[in-house]
């Protein structure tokens, strides 16, 4: 009698759990399919279109399009701006993150907010700010002219815009790691007589290494694709101040669709390379973390 009762109870229990699983299965299918469809429409389809359009007339026209001197100079300028932006922002990001996480000072909150500014300000506005600061109507323009250093409609302007737009990326990656770590290990090292740079190299750097690499990858990706701020400062001097995204725009504007897609495909390839590098960095970082 009592055994029978038990059976009923356990059977009811099973049914209930089963019903729950069925419910979550439907939710699971809906969630996954929404994500997949969204990703396909927004990301995969456009990417396929770019590649398809680029190769529509065959390989030789494609190679001709991407070996155009203007395109090559745009590629070089893009790489130049990216490398310089990454170097400057690595140094700045390390310093800022270090200062914010390790010291108490007035205006710290303000500094944190300001670092985030480039993410929130529209790149076009950022570009305009630099035009107003360094352009003909600026008070420092005569000074810049006297030393023959042009910012607006010149390469320095493009680099400046790229640095501005990408500077939160590295400090934002390092900051949480440094803050979680606290200052105990550095203090311990200092008490044993280690100097600032030794402490940084032996204690702090091993800790933030992976976050730093990840930040550099993100920064590089963003720097290559920057359009808005660079567009305002560039002046579109072909072969001189045109980066890859601008070159795409110019070609597109001239109704040269196939070459525009061909140049776009270079950017796509660079983005994919960066994504792969990112995944590798993340994977190695995680494995180290587990150990």
């Amino acid at each position: 009698m009592s055994a029978g009762n038990n059976q009923v109870i356990s059977r009811e229990g099973t049914t209930e759990i089963h019903a729950q699983t069925a419910g979550s299965k439907a939710v699971k299918i809906i969630l996954i399919s929404v994500s997949v469809i969204f990703l396909f429409v927004m990301l995969v389809m456009p990417l396929i279109t770019v590649i398809y359009e680029a190769f529509r007339k065959g390989l030789i026209p494609y190679l001709e399009a991407i070996s155009d001197p203007d395109t090559l100079s745009a590629l070089l300028l893009t790489l130049e701006a990216t490398v310089i932006a990454v170097v400057i922002n690595t140094v700045f990001g390390l310093f800022a993150a270090w200062a914010i996480s390790k010291f108490r000072f007035r205006g710290k909150k303000l500094l944190v907010t300001l670092i985030d500014l480039p993410v929130t300000v529209s790149p076009i506005i950022a570009g305009l700010i630099f035009v107003l600061t360094f352009g003909r109507q600026s008070i420092i323009y005569p000074l810049l002219e006297s030393i023959d250093f042009m910012v607006v409609y010149a390469v320095p302007g493009i680099i400046l815009a790229t640095v501005f737009v990408t500077f939160p990326f590295i400090s934002r990656e390092i900051l949480p790691v440094l803050e979680a770590q606290g200052t105990d290990e550095e203090e311990a090292a200092a008490l044993m007589g280690a100097k600032g740079f030794t402490i940084f190299r032996r204690v702090t750097l091993p800790h933030i290494k992976w976050a730093l690499l990840y930040g550099i990858v993100l920064c590089a990706a963003r720097a290559m694709g920057e359009f808005g701020a660079v567009s305002v400062l560039s002046g579109h001097l072909r072969g001189k101040t045109v980066t890859l995204p601008l070159q795409v725009e110019i070609l597109f504007g001239d109704n040269k669709f196939m070459p525009a897609f061909a140049v776009s495909s270079i950017l796509v390839v660079l983005a994919v390379v960066i994504l792969i590098v990112r995944s590798i960095v993340e994977y190695i970082g995680k494995r180290r973390g587990e150990k």
Partner: peptide, 20 residues
């Protein structure tokens, strides 16, 4: 400065260098 006082310090969290 702390580095030249010749003092040994054991932190509450131990603060061992975790990558060494």
């Amino acid at each position: 400065p702390a580095s030249r006082r010749g003092i040994g310090f054991v932190f509450q969290s131990y603060a061992l260098f975790r990558y060494m």
